[in-house]
């Protein structure tokens, strides 16, 4: 995340270049960079805004009561407000590696007939996925997280700025964010999306929702992918849906295949409804 202080996400890059920005976050923690009157307190640190006279207390307990994800959530709220103003319907695609996320995005872009789609790709390494997206004609920004196992709201804020510079954030359009393939960590990090969409391919086990409940609990839509392979695998569709609804009651499900095209009309209709709702609330 930060190339100048080494804290956190020093290995993160955007289209191959390190993130570069003034320092909005607090480096007072690091002795090597601490200096008097460094970063101004942000809204996230409200509980301690009361003034304390330095050095007067020998030892005491300070009440903090602050959520660990407060800083990420505040940045996610900024991203969400920015997208809402433009009427952009943004989705955060999460799944294990190899569930067919990029293939689904490519096929969706190819079939979509309601305006431009911008894409943010998240991977630890390589820009292969962004290249696949760009081959469709859509604009894509590639975030490489280095060792990081998930996208966060800070990275996505930078990617949004990059898309804006490329004039690729069109009002009332779609923004598809492909998270790092990982069924664990991305669940905790709000990016500012309208919905998390979890993809489960039929070549995986139908009990994945029970093994990785946080992700399925965080999602607003389950896409069962690669259904063309169902005749060749022992995947119980009804059981998978039942498991998913144990952790997320009433989770909507669309079964689809980019190979056969089955379910794609239903998926595109879902996207179109979301886009229209986002556009209706823009401004």
């Amino acid at each position: 995340m930060c190339s100048s202080c080494g804290c956190g996400h020093d290995a993160v890059s955007l289209d191959g270049k390190p993130l570069d920005h003034p320092h909005p976050h607090d480096h007072g923690l690091h002795r090597r960079s601490a200096r008097s009157g460094a970063a101004a307190p942000t809204g996230a640190y409200r509980p301690l805004d009361a003034a304390h006279a330095p050095g007067l207390d020998a030892g005491r307990t300070l009440k903090i009561e602050q959520d660990l994800l407060a800083a990420n959530d505040a940045l996610a709220a900024k991203n969400r407000a920015r997208l809402a103003r433009a009427g952009i319907f943004a989705l955060n695609f999460v799944s294990s590696p190899g569930s067919g996320k990029t293939s689904l995005l490519v096929d969706t872009i190819t079939r979509w007939q309601h305006g431009p789609i911008a894409v943010i790709e998240g991977d630890q390494q390589t820009s292969n996925d962004a290249a696949r997206i760009r081959a469709t004609g859509a604009t894509a920004v590639q975030i490489n997280t280095g060792r990081g196992c998930h996208l966060d709201a800070h990275m996505v804020g930078h990617a949004l700025a990059q898309l804006e510079r490329q004039a690729a954030l069109t009002d009332n359009s779609l923004l598809l964010i492909e998270n790092v393939g990982n069924l664990v960590c991305p669940a905790a990090f709000d990016l500012g999306e309208a919905h998390k969409v979890v993809i489960l391919s039929v070549t995986e086990g139908e009990d994945k929702p029970l093994k990785y409940p946080d992700m399925f609990r965080a999602a607003d839509l389950l896409l069962l992918s690669k259904t063309d392979l169902l005749p060749h695998v022992d995947f119980d569709v009804e059981q998978a849906i039942a498991y998913a609804r144990q952790v997320r009651p009433e989770l909507p499900v669309i079964a689809l295949s980019v190979k056969s095209g089955a379910g794609m009309a239903e998926w595109l209709a879902w996207l179109s409804r979301g886009q229209q709702a986002a556009a209706a609330h823009a401004g």
Binding site: C7, L29, Y45, P54, Q66, L68
Partner: peptide, 13 residues
């Protein structure tokens, strides 16, 4: 995140 929160609070105090 824990250490950012802790560091900011401790420094301000």
């Amino acid at each position: 995140s824990v250490l950012e929160i802790v560091g900011a609070a401790a420094r301000r105090a």
